[in-house]
């Protein structure tokens, strides 16, 4: 959540006063710039408050009267951790040590991404009555879906950290800082795609079905249940194509940041892409550029289509 609140507003959302959208009121032709700036800041603040209120509403509605439900949603990934560790490490012998931690370090951010995008996709449609009757900044609808997922993600990440520390694995180190740029790329990419699909889904209702299928396939395009080295071994110099998927880059960076394979890697296949940081930062830069480009597209599409939301719903 704090993540979200500190992230820059999507491109095009004016934060600073621009002449077009912060003109003086009627009869106040000579409004001084400081007032303009103040008003613009106030507007921005009101939007963030609205976003926060919507996220809070979603949380409240979802976990109303059931603290257990909330605890469960945190424990759920940890249960998965146990199951997958059993299946992959003991039954299938995948050769990835501490498989559960490996899996979770990538899966949490992926779940946050796919959860955001698929609930953002239906966000405008689900609030049809509101969109048709009240004028408000519509982008808060998909953004609140992202925020909702982000809150869960952060809490689950915290639980994962606790588990790692309890198991006595290595966690605290400079590599942990990698989650900051990786998180920034992830949130940019998630917001971009969320805006795009939420707008498309208003007019083209099959978007959500297509998205579900796409996310299912996309899951396997990230090295979460298999080692990244497997891809490197197959694709060799074409690995960069695989890494054009921003989520794959985010996933491997999170793994690098959180996952510590421990001393004895028994396998010839490297689990992690690289033991340094530059590799990740470079690829994050590319993924970030892709995400920003997509953000521009998503924002543009949203802005163009939102004028017709009330009519299409």
């Amino acid at each position: 959540m704090s993540h979200l609140a500190d992230a820059p507003l999507p491109a095009g959302t004016p934060v600073s006063p621009s002449p077009q959208q912060a003109g003086p009121g009627p009869g106040q032709h000579a409004m001084d710039p400081s007032r303009l700036a103040r008003r613009s800041r106030a507007q921005t603040r009101v939007r963030w408050e609205l976003l926060r209120n919507l996220i809070r509403k979603d949380l409240k509605v979802k976990y109303k009267g059931s603290t257990l439900g909330f605890a469960w949603s945190l424990a759920n990934p940890m249960l998965l951790l146990v199951v997958y560790t059993f299946v992959f490490q003991i039954v299938l012998k995948s050769g990835i040590p501490r498989f559960g931690i490996y899996l979770m370090s990538g899966l949490l951010i992926w779940n946050a991404f796919s959860g955001s995008v698929s609930s953002a996709c239906g966000a405008v449609v689900a609030n049809a009555n509101l969109v048709k009757k009240v004028r408000f900044p519509l982008a808060v609808l998909p953004l609140s879906a992202v925020g909702f997922a982000a809150v869960h993600f952060l809490l689950q990440l915290l639980v994962l950290f606790l588990v790692i520390l309890l198991l006595g694995y290595n966690l605290i180190g400079t590599e942990l800082l990698l989650i900051v740029p990786a998180g920034a790329v992830a949130i940019t990419f998630t917001v971009a795609l969320s805006l795009l699909v939420s707008a498309l889904n208003v007019r083209y209702r099959d978007t959500s079905h297509l998205l579900d299928v796409a996310l299912l396939a996309w899951f396997w395009l990230n090295p979460m249940v298999y080692a990244f080295g497997l891809i490197q071994n197959r694709l060799h110099e074409w690995t960069w194509v695989y890494l054009l998927n921003p989520m794959a880059v985010v996933v491997i960076t999170f793994q690098r940041a959180i996952y510590d394979p421990g001393g004895g890697s028994t396998n010839s296949t490297p689990i992690q892409a690289d033991l340094g940081y530059e590799f990740y930062l470079e690829h994050l830069a590319v993924a970030g550029a892709i995400s920003i480009a997509l953000l521009w597209v998503g924002f543009h599409v949203f802005r163009t289509m939102q004028a017709d939301f009330a009519e299409d719903l």
């Binding site: 999507p10 095009g12 969109v131 004028r135 982008a139 924002f299 949203f302 004028a307 939301f309």
Partner: peptide, 8 residues
């Protein structure tokens, strides 16, 4: 402002 449904 683009964040509101302003007819473009």
């Amino acid at each position: 402002d683009p964040a509101i449904p302003a007819p473009p």
